[in-house]
Design a protein around this nucleic acid. Structure first.
Lengths: 221, 221
DNA sequence: GCTTATTTTGAACAATGGTTCAATGTAATG
DNA sequence: CATTACATTGAACCATTGTTCAAAATAAGC
């Protein structure tokens, strides 16, 4: 159901060069969108970064908005799988606590970002952007909410007295902190008047986990 | 030092109508910038909302960027004063704890926003936007950092073993959660499959306070 | 009340940026 | 190898949008 399948079907397999171009364009779009946001990003900048002529971006990506959506879609499935795998694996090791659940949510994401593939860092920022802007609510609903729901469910089992709304609130605060983790190194450094602001995944998880626990405790009344 | 004071000085006092126009333009700009972001906002939309002709926006606000900066500046001083007043007042009531310090940081802001002046809600969102985007790092440094430094200092006295960087990290996460509090009602409601997502200031403060405490505890090693 | 700085207005300007297109190059298919 | 669908190119198109301007209206200062 990726495209209207009636008419306009492909008659030939895409060439190796075509696939490479397409991939370079999506990578470039990912980088530029992550850095500038949707409105700030220029198709010309994407073309320049991908080292292809302007027209080719539209040829492969369609409109700017379609390109944006495709960039988000491209890694969404893998991200969800990684998160759910981590959850399943953690569960097999014993009973879950809040700390572990949030770690399963954040870590796969951040390990990809910090790892060998720098494109994932850009993608992580994009996900955070999408998660925070109502304009892209439909993307969130389609691609991310199902997985987040699963995590909410898991937390709800730990805190049966806490309403779903409050659990969701905790998750949303946590994702916001994640966004800060990914984008605000400069601000931390400026505020600390220090050059080295090396936030750690453990620190982020500790913050969110304790924060959620406290919020939930307040909501049990 | 608001403008280059050499040459081009005013020879007459501004008229009552002029002041009203200027104010309407700044209010409109505040609303539109908060809703659309800097890149997404259109000067024409600002003019339309203010119900003034297009040219008048530039006449009063200068360039789009200058207008943005002026909107931020307009309430910055009052916000800082409110925050510092709350801190002083709390201090006079006895020894501070982390919860109280963060409450002093968030509450003045949020009470204005939730109160009778809806413009403050827009402003609060703007501050969060500026705090999160390196493009506006100089605004943060000039207008907000001094006050934030004061709060960091206060927290550092409570946690003398924790490095300044880690305290700054906690503050930045907290501001990110604040941003979420202000902008993500829709997402919370969507995730909870509920119509009523009424996050409370107390809930936010509880989240950030416990989160910071946990982060600091991790950093004392 | 007269003078003139300032404000207002609507239009035009110029730059930006998304999109389209026809011509050309390339390679998959038979 | 011939055919032809697809990819590539660069130029042009055109809507959007920030900015400027000259003329008209307004009101502050004397």
């Amino acid at each position: 159901m990726r495209k209207k399948s009636t008419c306009k079907q492909r008659l030939r397999a895409p060439s190796k060069r075509s696939i490479a171009s397409r991939s370079r364009i999506l990578d470039a779009a990912e980088t530029v969108f992550a850095r500038e946001g949707f409105d700030g990003a220029k198709v010309r900048d994407i073309a320049a970064l991908a080292e292809v002529p302007l027209g080719l971006v539209n040829h492969h990506g369609g409109s700017k908005e379609a390109l944006f959506r495709e960039v988000i879609e491209r890694r969404a499935e893998e991200l969800s799988r990684l998160r759910l795998d981590a959850l399943t694996q953690a569960k097999s090791r014993g009973a879950l606590d809040l700390n572990t659940i949030l770690d399963c949510f954040f870590r796969p994401y951040l390990e990809k970002a910090a790892g060998n593939d720098p494109q994932w860092l850009a993608y992580a920022r994009l996900v955070a952007i999408v998660s925070a802007d109502p304009v892209w609510a439909d993307i969130s609903a389609d691609l991310f909410d199902p997985t987040v729901q699963r995590f909410i469910h898991e937390i709800s089992e730990l805190y049966p007295k806490v309403s779903r709304v409050i659990v969701a609130e905790g998750i949303v605060y946590s994702v916001a902190a994640l966004l800060a983790f990914l984008t605000s190194e400069w601000r931390i450094a400026a505020l600390a008047k220090s050059l080295e602001a090396q936030a750690s995944v453990e620190g982020l998880v500790a913050f969110c986990s304790a924060g959620c626990a406290a919020r939930f405790a307040l909501g049990e009344a």
